[in-house]
Design a protein around this nucleic acid. Structure first.
Lengths: 348, 348
DNA sequence: AAGAATGCAGCAAGCGCTTTCTATATATGC
DNA sequence: GCATATATAGAAAGCGCTTGCTGCATTCTT
C-alpha cells in the first residue's frame, strides 16, 4: 500500500487535518508540530495524492498548454517560455504546478478533446498557442468550451492567437497582417514587382492574416495580383520546396518568393538553388517568425521576428495571475522586420 | 454548480452506478439504458470529474513525457511521436489519455520535481527522453523515484536514454557511441588527421558517449589526441559558433570539426564561413541527429541519423502496454551515417 | 415446469484528502 | 482575578466517482 495522510498523522501523533495544513501552509500550525509532521513526511517518503487533493479542494495544479505542432520550434519556443513562467518546479515554493503541453497536431477534434480532458482535470489554467482554425462550427465549439472553462474557474489565455470574443479569454495576438505587409513592402521597395507567395494551410487565421498583409502591400503599390502567384501548403520545409517548384513552373519570371514561415522559406531556398537560381541575385526569399535557424541559413533569411519567448512568458504570467491582463483583455504583439541576406534588388 | 454524475443519473432515471458503467464501458449495460444515459450526458453537457474518478479508481489517465528542452526539435520530434501513440485524442476510443510533456530544461531538480508531481498525480506512465545527468547523487535519486513509480503501477520507459538498472524501467537506448565512432571513422577515411570536437555539456551521458565513440575511432587509427581539439559547450548553435572560434584559435590547421549535434554543427559552419574558410574544401563539418533542417544547410550536413520518430513511437506503445517491451527490458537503437555535402577530402 | 444460470441495475462503502466547526489551552484586558 | 480574545489542534462531513455485492427478471436446462 502507498502511504497516506493518515499514516503520516499517526506517526507524527497529530490529526490528519494538521498534516494537511502543514502541507498546504494555509493555516497556523505551531512550529514544533510542523517540524514533527515534516519529519514524519520525510521518514515515510510520503507523496500527496493529487487526485484526492484536487477532489477535496475542488482545484488542481494542472496547467494546460495547447500547441499545434510540438515538433515545430515555433511552438516549442513558446511552450518553453510559457512553462518557465508557470513554474512547475523552479517557480516560487508552494506554487508548484504541473505545466503540461498538449499537441493537437492541428486537428480540430484533438484540440477539442484536449480541452475537454483539461476541463475534466479541472485545470487551473489553459494557454492556447498559435493560429486558430477558421472552420465555423469548430470555432463555435471551441469558443463554447473556453467559456465553460472560464466559468469553472480556469483561466484561459490565448498566445499568438486571435481573440475569442465573449469567452472571457485573454489574448496576446500576433500582428501577422502587419508583419506580412511590412515584409512585402520591403520587397516592393527593393524593386520587386512579380512576387510569389507560399501560404500556409487554408482555414487558419495565421495563414489568412499573413496573406492579407501581403496583398495589402501589393494593393497599396498598385501591383495587380496574379492568381498564379499564390500557392497553399503546410508550414514545413517540404511544403516550401514543392510549392516553389510549382510557382516556378507557373511563372519562371518571379523575382521574389514570400513564404508563410521560415521553414517554408528554407524549403523554397533549396528548390530555387536546385533550379539553378541564386539567392538573392536571381530571386529574393523572405520568411516569417525568425526562428533560431533562420540567421544561419545561407544566405541568412530576411524575415519578420516574432517575440515568441517574450509573448509566451507574458502569457504564462497572465495565466498564473501574476501579471495584469492587458486592458480589454486583448493585446497585439508586433513583429519586427529583419532584413538579411536573402533579399536584394531584383535583376533588371 | 457543475453537473455531476448524480445529475445525469437522475435525468436518465438510473442509478449513478449505471451512468459510471456506461461511461467506462467496462460492464454490461442494456442498449436502451445506455442510450438514455448518453442522451442525458449530452443534454446536460456533462464532463466527468477527473480527480474524483482517479481517486475512486486509483488510476489516472495522465501520461508524462519528460524532455530536456522542448524548444529543441530533437525533443519536440520525439515528444510528438510518443504523444501520437499515447493516444490522447485520436487513439482508439475509450483509451483517452492526457499525454503531457514536461520541460526539465536540463535541470536535475526540475526533473525530480516533475517526477514527484507525476507520482502525485498517479500517472499511468512516464517516458523520459534524452540523455541523463551523470551526477551520482542525482542519478541515485532519479533511480529511486523511478523504482517507486514502477511499484505504484506507473509504467516507466526511457527513450534515447541509457538504461536505469534495477528500476524496472524499459529502455530504448540510442547507440551514441557507435554513431560517434562511425562518423569520425568516415572523416578519417577521407583523410582527416586533425579533427576538432565540440562536445555537449559535461556530465551528460549523451555527451560522454558521443565523445567516447569519437575517441575510439581516433585510437583505432592511431591518431594521437590533442587536448586542444576538444571543447565543451551547450547543445545549441550559439555554442557551436563560439566553440569553433575557440577551436580555430587553438589550432588553425584543423581540417574537420565534429559537433555534438546538428544545431552545434550549423553554428560551427557559420563560424568557419566567417573566418573565411569554405566547407568542405577547407574544413569538413559533421553533426549528429539529422534534424529536419540539416539537409537544408548549405552545404547539407553530414551527420548520424537517429530514428527519433520511430523510437518515440515505439516508446509510446510500450508505455501504453500496446507493444512488448524488448527482451531484457533494453533495446539499442542504432543511428545511420548520412554522408552529405559538408564533409570531403581535406586539402593537402 | 421447476430449478439453475444469466443479464442487468441498484445499494452502499469507500478512495484520500480539505475544511468548517468545535474544543481546549494560553494570552490579554480592566 | 475573572471574563474575553487568541492561538492551535481535532472531529467529522463531505468532494464525485468506482465497484463489490446483492437482487430481481428473464432465459436456459433437462
Amino acid at each position: 500500500m502507498t502511504v497516506t495522510l493518515a499514516d503520516v498523522a499517526a506517526r507524527a501523533q497529530v490529526s490528519p487535518a494538521t498534516v494537511s495544513r502543514v502541507l498546504n501552509g494555509n493555516y497556523p500550525v505551531a512550529a514544533t508540530t510542523r517540524e514533527r509532521v515534516l519529519r514524519a513526511v520525510d521518514e515515510l517518503d510520503y507523496v500527496l495524492n493529487g487526485p484526492a487533493s484536487a477532489l477535496a479542494a475542488a482545484t488542481s495544479d494542472l496547467v494546460g498548454i495547447l500547441v499545434n505542432d510540438i515538433a515545430d520550434p515555433f511552438f516549442g519556443i513558446m511552450a518553453s517560455a510559457i512553462q518557465s513562467e508557470i513554474g512547475g518546479p523552479g517557480g516560487r515554493a508552494g506554487g508548484e504546478r504541473l505545466a503540461v503541453v498538449c499537441n493537437t497536431g492541428g486537428s480540430p477534434e484533438r484540440e477539442l478533446t484536449y480541452l475537454t480532458l483539461l476541463q475534466r482535470q479541472r485545470a487551473a489554467a489553459v494557454v492556447l498557442t498559435g493560429g486558430a482554425m477558421e472552420n465555423a462550427p469548430h470555432a463555435a465549439a471551441v469558443a463554447a468550451k473556453l467559456r465553460k472553462l472560464g466559468e469553472a474557474g480556469t483561466r484561459v489565455v490565448l498566445c499568438g492567437r486571435p481573440p475569442a470574443p465573449d469567452t472571457g479569454a485573454f489574448a496576446l495576438t500576433f500582428d501577422n497582417r502587419g508583419g506580412g505587409r511590412e515584409l512585402t513592402e520591403h520587397l516592393i521597395g527593393l524593386g520587386h514587382r512579380r512576387l510569389g507567395y507560399i501560404a500556409g494551410p487554408e482555414e487558419r487565421t495565421t495563414t489568412r492574416h499573413r496573406l492579407e498583409g501581403h496583398r495589402e502591400a501589393l494593393a497599396a503599390h498598385g501591383i495587380a495580383e496574379d492568381p498564379r502567384w499564390t500557392v497553399h501548403g503546410r508550414y514545413d520545409r517540404r511544403s516550401g520546396y514543392e510549392a516553389t517548384l510549382e510557382l516556378l513552373r507557373r511563372d519562371p519570371s518571379l523575382t521574389a518568393v514570400v513564404a508563410a514561415n521560415d521553414s517554408v522559406a528554407v524549403g523554397a531556398c533549396a528548390a530555387l538553388r536546385e533550379s539553378g537560381r541564386r539567392i538573392p541575385d536571381d530571386v529574393s526569399v523572405a520568411g516569417f517568425d525568425d526562428l533560431p535557424f533562420s540567421v544561419d541559413a545561407v544566405p541568412s533569411l530576411t524575415t519578420v521576428r516574432l517575440p515568441l519567448s517574450e509573448a509566451g512568458a507574458r502569457a504564462g504570467r497572465i495565466a498564473m495571475g501574476r501579471e495584469e491582463p492587458p486592458p480589454g483583455g486583448i493585446a497585439t504583439v508586433r513583429g519586427e522586420l529583419m532584413v538579411r541576406g536573402s533579399s536584394g534588388v531584383p535583376r533588371k
